[in-house]
């Protein structure tokens, strides 16, 4: 029980009349790296957005680090502070410098002293190799740099889990590698990660398990090698044959 950091039980979610997630059951252990893949519109993004309650689920339960996600806001903020998230569109705060982007939440949410927050931010920016850009504004950086900054910003909250929502989909092919490198390093450092991505190379390299979703359901979940070597369902086979 204790090493299961995320537990999702019989979770259902609707957008209006349309059911996006159907009967999702998922358990994630600490320090596991999980890649979620599937065709677009299959509910991958919605699933991980539910994990830090950017979307509300209507049925079933989601338990993150021992706390069930409910409508009680105070708890939600605490859980969100422990779950870092990186978005497809980076979503950096354009009115703040890179450094301020990284220190904003630690200072105001975790109440770190400014000095400590800045040291921490520089440390994480160095890890993703953009510490030299710390005083620039997001608009002055390339997409790859912005996404690495977004990773650093999430890491500055020292989260227990990192969620990645298609982090490389909005990038030029040349910049994908630098972002993936940062993510690989993070994975090697032992972070619990759930990654929605189409980068199968990344999945093969770091993922412990791969989840394949289609039409709001988890179709297949398997160890990475197993998943790529002999997928069980036909839908997965079809998907893999098209993407590889």
């Amino acid at each position: 029980m204790s090493d299961k950091i995320i537990q999702i039980l019989n979770m259902n979610k609707w957008f209006g009349d349309f059911q996006v997630l159907k009967n999702i059951n998922l358990e994630v252990e600490k320090n596991k790296k999980i890649v979620v893949c599937g065709p677009s519109g299959s509910g991958k993004s919605t699933l991980i957005r539910c994990i830090n309650r950017l979307e509300e689920h209507q049925q079933g339960s989601i338990i993150v680090d021992g706390n069930e996600l409910t409508a009680d806001t105070k708890d939600i903020e605490k859980i969100r502070a422990e779950v870092g998230m990186v978005f497809q569109q980076f979503n950096l705060f354009p009115h703040l410098s890179i450094l301020d982007n990284c220190t904003l939440a630690p200072i105001w949410v975790k109440k770190l002293p400014k000095k400590d927050a800045e040291d921490l931010a520089i440390q994480h920016l160095e890890k993703v190799q953009i510490a030299d850009q710390a005083n620039k504004y997001p608009g002055q950086l390339s997409g790859g740099q912005q996404q690495r900054c977004a990773i650093a910003r999430a890491l500055c909250m020292e989260p227990k889990i990192m969620l990645f929502d298609e982090p490389t989909s909005a990038l030029d092919p040349e910049m994908i590698k630098e972002v993936l490198d940062a993510m690989v390093n993070l994975a090697k450092a032992g972070m619990t990660m759930i990654v929605v991505t189409h980068e199968m190379g990344f999945a093969k390299e770091v993922a412990d398990e791969v989840i394949f979703m289609d039409e709001g359901m988890i179709v297949e979940r398997a160890e990475t090698k197993e998943f790529f070597a002999n997928p069980k369902s036909d839908r997965t086979k079809l998907f893999l044959s098209q993407i590889l």
Binding site: R49, N52, L54, T73, E77, K78, R80, A81, E82, V83, G84, M85, F87, Q89, F90, N91, L92, F93, P94, H95, L104, A105, W108, V109, K110, A150, R153, A154, M157
Partner: peptide, 27 residues
């Protein structure tokens, strides 16, 4: 403002007022 700004602020653990004062309103 794009919805992503709200998402990003929320995902960093900010509540309604912190999100608005620090992220949304300045922009």
């Amino acid at each position: 403002l794009p919805r992503g700004q709200y998402d990003a602020a929320k995902s960093l653990g900010m509540g309604y007022w912190k999100m608005h004062i620090l992220v949304i309103l300045p922009q």
